[in-house]
Design a protein around this nucleic acid. Sequence first.
DNA 1: CCTACCGATCGGTAGG
DNA 2: CCTACCGATCGGTAGG
Lengths: 190, 190
Amino acid sequence: MSRLTRDDIVIAAGRRFAEYGYHGTSMRDLGGDLGILGSSIYAHVGGKHDLLVAVVERAGSLFNASAEAATREGSDPSDTLHRLIRGHIDVLIDHAPEARTFLNEATFLEPEDRRRVTGQRDRYEATFRRTLESGIVSGDFRHVDVTLTGIYILSVLNAIGRWYDPDGPVDRDALAVDIHEFVLRGVTAH
Amino acid sequence: MSRLTRDDIVIAAGRRFAEYGYHGTSMRDLGGDLGILGSSIYAHVGGKHDLLVAVVERAGSLFNASAEAATREGSDPSDTLHRLIRGHIDVLIDHAPEARTFLNEATFLEPEDRRRVTGQRDRYEATFRRTLESGIVSGDFRHVDVTLTGIYILSVLNAIGRWYDPDGPVDRDALAVDIHEFVLRGVTAH
DNA sequence: CCTACCGATCGGTAGG
DNA sequence: CCTACCGATCGGTAGG
């Protein structure tokens, strides 16, 4: 057993916050997961709140990195949308605890931190709106309200962490294709 | 000031749970909202957990009552879907605290209660799947996976409580129409 | 519904 | 990272 790093603690905190919530996690719980005392955590972080900030900020960075990668290679809006959807799924599955904490516990950040995270989030969502707009301009998409439609798409994506089982019957490629199809065509026949 | 009823306390608890979460709410906070002491709440309920059960069960009943009303008058699947969407929006706006607590805090119920609530929820979601199926049979809808598509639709609907402002520019009629259109047609032109 | 509590647990600190 | 704590707060109870 070597010594723990700050990163080890942030990762364990993400898991706890995702499952039990920020207020449902005690420093002693967290220490228990790591094999140390709750009070020993204070050798690595200033307080419980710092851990929430670190977890949430990590997820925000991952989402934005994904959006940048998806929009780097310009191609048609439908393909860009597919890459955005696939990237979101990847972050949600590969960094599930951080992503879930980002989505569910960010409200408990202190005002200053929350504003910064809200900014991160707005940047990310703006990528979806821009993709929708470019599709409308190109004539590929109809004249949807990009604000509302961006919210709908992200609602479908953000919920994935609440029901998707990576070891279940649907793999992530199929999921991305199915959601892309749903977003593009809806349920109507033809 | 007349005496409080159990109902008054359940309503106040819903508000607290929706805003601060179950674990972020203390009985003293709740008493403060009601103008009584935290300990006085125990004259009306057996414990904090009973309040979570009451709030969540109320929301579950409202969602199911809405689904029954929406499917009572048989008509084409697209219209039924519109009524389901509109009903969900109404519950989410008119009973926002209970609905949000239902969606976010039900995981903190004790196993037995959680199972019952999960049952309520499954019944509700099944109504969406049945409507999709009847649309596929009638040829109105394409051959979507009804499980996945039901989840997508409910994801869009459940997220409404996280962003929608009833006093904002979008009224609930317009929202229902816009979501119905999105679910039916997606974003593709034509 | 209040008074007057209870033991348990909370986030956090001093000193090593 | 542990020992040994701290004051504050937690859910809850007995008795009125």
